[in-house]
Amino acid sequence: MKLTGALVLLGAALLLTSGGNCGICPAINKDLDLFLGGSVSEYVSYVSQYNNESAVLETAEFLKTCVDDKLTEEDKENARSLVAKIEAYPLC
């Protein structure tokens, strides 16, 4: 559950850096979709489009594997639901 909390904080931080309109950048949305639902290879391939350094790719692979091993489908769905609720918030 600690990792879920970290994902919630990550989502909040992403919204704060989105330019003030509360909409999440499409690239970040795609990243979150792959992070929570894609395969390890899909996620690492997507990350490599933006940063191809071996240390970054190794870390992306480690984090994605950790998420897949530790989070339940319910945890992942809760994280997706949070992002959807934030984007739908009327004050955004």
Results as ranks from 00 to 15, higher is better:
V47H: 06
N29S: 06
V40S: 03
V40P: 01
S45T: 09
E42G: 00
L34I: 06
E53K: 14
Y50I: 04
Y46F: 14
S48M: 08
Y50W: 11
N52G: 12
S45M: 07
S39E: 09
V47Y: 09
Y43P: 02
A55R: 15
S39F: 12
V44T: 11
E58A: 11
S54N: 13
F35C: 01
Y50F: 11
G37N: 02
Y43C: 01
E58F: 13
Q49F: 12
V47K: 04
V44I: 10
I28Q: 08
L34R: 03
Y50H: 09
S41A: 13
I28A: 12
V47P: 05
L32N: 02
D31S: 13
E42T: 02
V44Q: 08
E53W: 14
S54H: 09
Y46I: 04
V44S: 07
E53F: 11
S39N: 07
S41N: 14
F35H: 00
S45G: 14
A55S: 15
L36Y: 06
S39T: 14
D31R: 07
E42F: 03
E53T: 08
N29A: 00
N51V: 12
L36P: 03
L36E: 05
S48Q: 14
I28S: 07
K30S: 00
N52Q: 15
I28L: 10
Y50R: 05
V40C: 02
Y50L: 06
S39C: 09
S54T: 11
L34F: 07
G37F: 01
E58P: 07
G38H: 02
E53V: 12
S39I: 07
L34A: 05
E58S: 13
N51Q: 10
L36W: 02
S48W: 12
Y46S: 03
S54W: 13
A55N: 12
G37W: 01
G38M: 02
L32I: 02
L57S: 08
L57A: 12
A55M: 15
Q49T: 10
V40A: 05
N52F: 13
N52C: 11
V44F: 08
E58D: 15
Y43I: 02
G38S: 00
E53I: 11
G37Q: 03
E58Y: 14
G38C: 02
A55C: 13
N29K: 06
E53L: 15
S41I: 12
N29Y: 01
G37R: 01
S45E: 08
E53D: 15
V40N: 06
A55G: 10
L34Y: 07
L36A: 03
D33Q: 13
F35R: 00
D33T: 09
L57V: 09
S48R: 13
V40D: 05
E53C: 13
L34V: 08
L36S: 01
S48G: 11
L32K: 02
N51S: 15
L57W: 10
D33E: 14
S48T: 07
Y46W: 05
